[in-house]
């Protein structure tokens, strides 16, 4: 038992390095997904007709494919078209674009549920369109999106081990490396599991705190129920 603990501690630096890569991968993918997702959401809501269609197809396609297939197409498929993308960037692209399809849905739903009367209220008291967006729609949309966003973040975090398949040294891959030389899969995988679990709950807690800070009494609650 003590021996096992010592063994885990010895290998902890490697595992933590892997965990850091997993977090980097997740955060970058989520950020990419946010930028693209917001754009897609706005275009799907306010864009010209054919752009709306296009965005709908974009969401459809990305949500309809297994993530591993997306990653393989980017990393192994694109080189045959003459496009070579490094493994880490491929992983961020794959996870990020897939996430953008889901985040687009979250933001679109949030903006839609705010409704035109809020825009009209803004205009009617003499705000211009930009100010109405900035002071009325965006702050509400962020609050309404937080629960969905938190969920999406943890999904991407839990999908990050798939980057293993592209040879990226994230947590699971580091664990595997250790197992190859030590033959102690149970101890190592269990340690990996604990680290993922802790990461998950750390971010979950963090976003919940953020939501609490920005909570408007009665508002999000009543929208949720």
């Amino acid at each position: 038992m003590i021996e096992s603990i010592l063994f885990v501690f010895e290998n902890m630096p490697l595992l933590l390095k892997g965990a850091l890569v997993a977090v980097e991968l997740t955060v970058l993918s989520i950020l990419l997904g946010m930028v693209v997702g917001l754009l897609v959401a706005i275009l799907r809501l306010y864009g010209p007709k054919y752009v709306k269609k296009l965005m709908k197809i974009y969401e459809w396609v990305l949500r309809g494919l297994p993530i591993l297939v997306i990653l393989f197409i980017i990393y192994f498929g694109f080189p045959s078209l003459g496009v070579n993308i490094p493994a880490f960037i491929s992983a961020v692209l794959g996870l990020g674009l897939r996430s953008s399809a889901y985040q687009a849905q979250i933001y679109r739903g949030a903006i839609q549920s705010i409704g035109v009367e809020q825009v009209e209220a803004g205009l009617s008291i003499g705000m211009n369109r930009a100010k109405t967006m900035l002071y009325v729609i965006v702050p509400q949309a962020i609050r309404l999106s937080l629960p969905g966003f938190t969920n999406e973040f943890t999904i991407v975090l839990k999908d990050s081990p798939l980057a293993y398949a592209l040879g990226i040294a994230e947590l699971l891959k580091q664990g595997r490396n250790i197992i190859v030389t030590s033959f102690r899969p149970f101890t190592i995988y269990l340690t990996c599991a604990i680290i993922y679990f802790l990461l998950f709950h750390f971010f979950y807690y963090l976003f919940r705190k953020i939501a609490e800070v920005y909570e408007v009494p009665g508002y999000i609650m009543s929208k949720k129920s």
Binding site: E117, Q118, A121, L123, S124, I125, V216, Y219
Partner: peptide
């Protein structure tokens, strides 16, 4: 113009945040 015209509606349009 709108700043010189107050508008009150049934669904009020108060800003919930």
């Amino acid at each position: 113009l709108r700043r010189n015209i107050g508008y009150v509606i049934q669904e009020i349009g108060l800003f919930p945040h």
